[in-house]
C-alpha cells in the first residue's frame, strides 16, 4: 500500500509543481515549458510506432502538420468555432489521413515504411506550399482568433491569456500522455509489443498483425494531430516549415533515440534534454543543428540505449555496489 501512496503523493506533487510553475518562473519559461510539452507528447506518439511497434517513420510530421493546419484553417475560415471541437478536428483530420495511408503502409515494414513516410511527408510539405488558397503558401495560416474555453452558462476562460493557455495546454497534453500510457498497458498494447519483437509469432497466435498495426498507426497519428493542434493555437500561426518540414519528422526521432526507445518515458526525457540544449546553444551559436547532429552521433555510438538505458545501467551498478558494501559489512 505504501508504494501506491508514494505514487499518489508524487503525482500530486507533480500537479502542484505544474500549477505554480508559471507563478514562480514567469511567462517566458512557461512558454518554453509549453513548447517542450508539445514536443514531448508529439515524440511519445512517434515512439508508439518506433519503440512499441518497431516502425520507423520519417514522415510523422504529416500528422503534426495536418492537426495544426486543420485547427488553424477551421478557426481562420469559420467564425465562432469553439475551442475543444477545433482540437478534436485536428485529431480527426490526422486519423483520416492515417486511414487513407493505412492500406499502403501497414503492408510494409523497416526501411520501406520509413521511406514511404519520407515521401508522403514531403508530398504534404509541397502541397502545403502549393495549395495557396487553403494554406496561404509560404506565409502559412496565422492571426486567426483563439476561442475562449467555455462551457455555456458555466464558465468561459480567455485563452489569449498565456497563463490560462498554459493550464489548458498542459491539461490536454497531460491527458493525451495518460491515454497513450494506458494504451500500452491494455491487451492490444501487449500485442503491439509482441509485433515489435516477433510479428510472425503474433500472427501464428491468432492476431492479425496488419489490423493491429493499423489501429496503433491511427492512434499515434491522431494524438500527433492533437499536439499539432495545440501548437497552432500556441503560436497562433502554422506554416509549412513548422508543420511539415522534414526536421519536424526527424526531431522526435532524435529525442526518442536520445531519451531511450525502450521505455515509455524515454521520449519525454529526450525532449527535455533537447529543449534544454537548444535553449542553451541558441544563446551562444546559430549552429544548433550541428550540435544536435553531434549529440545524435555520440548517443548512437556510445549509448545506443539512450538516456533511460544509461540511467538503468547506472542504477544496476549502484545496486551492485551497494550489495558489495552490504556483504562486506556482514
Amino acid at each position: 500500500m505504501t508504494k501506491r501512496m508514494a505514487k499518489w503523493v508524487s503525482w500530486g506533487f507533480l500537479c502542484l509543481v505544474l500549477l505554480v510553475f508559471p507563478r514562480v518562473f514567469g511567462i517566458y519559461y512557461s512558454n518554453v515549458f509549453v513548447a517542450f510539452a508539445i514536443f514531448a507528447v508529439y515524440s511519445l506518439t512517434l515512439n508508439m510506432l518506433l519503440g512499441y511497434t518497431g516502425l520507423l517513420s520519417f514522415g510523422h510530421a504529416m500528422f503534426f502538420g495536418t492537426g495544426a493546419y486543420t485547427t488553424a484553417i477551421a478557426l481562420d475560415r469559420i467564425s465562432g468555432m469553439p475551442l475543444l471541437p477545433v482540437v478534436l478536428a485536428g485529431f480527426v483530420a490526422s486519423v483520416v489521413l492515417a486511414l487513407i495511408l493505412c492500406p499502403i503502409v501497414v503492408r510494409v515494414g523497416g526501411t520501406a515504411f520509413a521511406m514511404l513516410h519520407l515521401a508522403f511527408g514531403q508530398l504534404m510539405y509541397v502541397l502545403a506550399l502549393k495549395l495557396r488558397f487553403l494554406t496561404g503558401g509560404e506565409d502559412g495560416v496565422g492571426g486567426f482568433p483563439i476561442p475562449a474555453f467555455s462551457i455555456p452558462g458555466i464558465i468561459s476562460v480567455d485563452m489569449t491569456n498565456p497563463l490560462n493557455f498554459f493550464y489548458f495546454a498542459i491539461a490536454v497534453l497531460g491527458l493525451s500522455t495518460w491515454i497513450l500510457w494506458f494504451f500500452t498497458k491494455t491487451p492490444i498494447g501487449s500485442i503491439m509489443i509482441g509485433i515489435r519483437d516477433n510479428p510472425q509469432r503474433v500472427e501464428y497466435m491468432g492476431f492479425r498483425v496488419t489490423h493491429t498495426k493499423a489501429i496503433i498507426y491511427c492512434l499515434a497519428a491522431g494524438f500527433a494531430g492533437i499536439t499539432g493542434s495545440i501548437y497552432a493555437l500556441f503560436q497562433n500561426l502554422i506554416s509549412a516549415e513548422d508543420g511539415y518540414n522534414i526536421m519536424v519528422s526527424f526531431g522526435p526521432i532524435m529525442a526518442t533515440i536520445v531519451g531511450g526507445v525502450g521505455s515509455f518515458s524515454g521520449p519525454i526525457f529526450g525532449s527535455a534534454i533537447f529543449s534544454i540544449i537548444e535553449e542553451l546553444t541558441s544563446r551562444y551559436t546559430e549552429r544548433v543543428e550541428l550540435v544536435m547532429g553531434l549529440i545524435l552521433i555520440g548517443v548512437i555510438l556510445y549509448a545506443p540505449m539512450g538516456f533511460m538505458g544509461v540511467m538503468g545501467l547506472l542504477k544496476q551498478r549502484w545496486l551492485a555496489a551497494r550489495k558489495v558494501k552490504l556483504e562486506g559489512a556482514k
Binding site: 526527424f250 526521432i253 543543428e289 547532429g293 553531434l294 545524435l296 552521433i297 548512437i300 555510438l301
Partner: peptide, 9 residues
C-alpha cells in the same frame, strides 16, 4: 539515424 546525424553536421 547515424546518417541523419552526419547529414545534420
Amino acid at each position: 539515424l547515424l546518417t541523419v546525424g552526419v547529414s545534420l553536421v
